Simulated assay, not measured.
Amino acid sequence: MMRRWFSSLFFLPVLLGLAACQAEPPQSSGQNAPPVTESLTIPDDPDPALWVVKDEDTTIYLFGTIHILKPGLSWFDEAVKDAFDESEELVVEMVQPDPATMVKIVNDLAIDKTGVSLRDKLSEEDRADYEAAMASLNLPVDRFDPFEPWFASISMSLIPLMESGYTTGSGVEDALTSRAKAQNKRIVGLETPEQQLGFFDKLPEDVQIRFLNFNVDTISEMPDGMENMIAHWSNANIGALAELMNAGLEEKIVYETLLSNRNANWAIWVEERMKEPGTVFMAVGAGHLAGDDSLQEQLKKRNILVERVKY
């Protein structure tokens, strides 16, 4: 089973956008990469799950996304394409600002204002492990010293994925946003970049450090974990996807901050949007559409019927 904390990557598309603004990560030697797991395969024709909420004059499609992919995965077809083409409006977690604005927002929130170096916040043993992980990524050990632990953790997690062929411009939201612009659809963000970063920035520092320490210990597992996640997503294995992406958020504050509270807020958004006519394609991280506190479950609490689209 995928280990905890890895799912945090899929709740923060803003950092993927930031990575696209930066230089390509240094290439590692590959000596730390684990063997590829063969237990799951990504099909030639992925069919991710799709749901719909509708009344007399409003239709809202719910589609789970993966924020970062390798180029060339053919998921935009059949019912997904039909639902998107039918929609006048695309709703995503966050509308990406321009690169300069994004960098400023990230720096404002992610740089530690106390003046205490990141590595000085770690125990002697944890610091040694952290520095070894940085070296394995061919990064200077002081690269993230000015930043808060959450930022270092997620930034480190992206590097092995990008070295394995994943690109920040190949995620589902990127493709949908590009098509929406080409078709002159309205594009709406459920959250702002400041809000998305704030979810992590407001976590207590000890939680952030545990977040960092675990990702340091499992940094080499990231590519295999992503491969498993995409396989479950591609095959619409909702139960397995829920276990993989959400089961590791054991700490209540993390679970509520990253998942359940956001789903509850989005359910309110859907309920309000249903009062207006039109057809909407709502695309949010796949982890939000799986599990006991999924967006669908939050909608059911509001007596809003959610149906799976069969295709």
Rank of each mutant, 00 (worst) to 15 (best):
S234H: 02
A79V: 10
Q22N: 14
V53G: 02
F214H: 15
V216E: 00
Q208H: 00
I268V: 15
N138C: 05
N32W: 10
L18E: 14
V80L: 12
P193V: 07
V92M: 01
V270I: 11
I238L: 13
V14E: 15
V306P: 00
K81G: 03
E271N: 11
E173A: 05
E131W: 00
A110Y: 10
M226Y: 13
W75Q: 01
A267N: 05
P35L: 13
P34D: 03
D47V: 10
V309E: 07
E250V: 14
G64Q: 07
V14M: 08
N107S: 08
L212I: 09
I304F: 08
E307Q: 15
A83L: 05
G30L: 01
K185L: 08
E56A: 15
M282I: 02
S87G: 06
G225I: 02
C21R: 05
W269M: 04
A49I: 08
G169I: 02
E227M: 11
P97M: 06
R210Q: 15
N184D: 13
T41C: 07
T279N: 04
L158R: 08
K275Q: 11
G198P: 05
D142F: 12
Y255N: 13
L69W: 01
A135I: 09
L139D: 03
E194R: 07
N261C: 06
Q196I: 06
S157V: 01
A231Y: 08
G30Y: 02
R273I: 03
V188G: 02
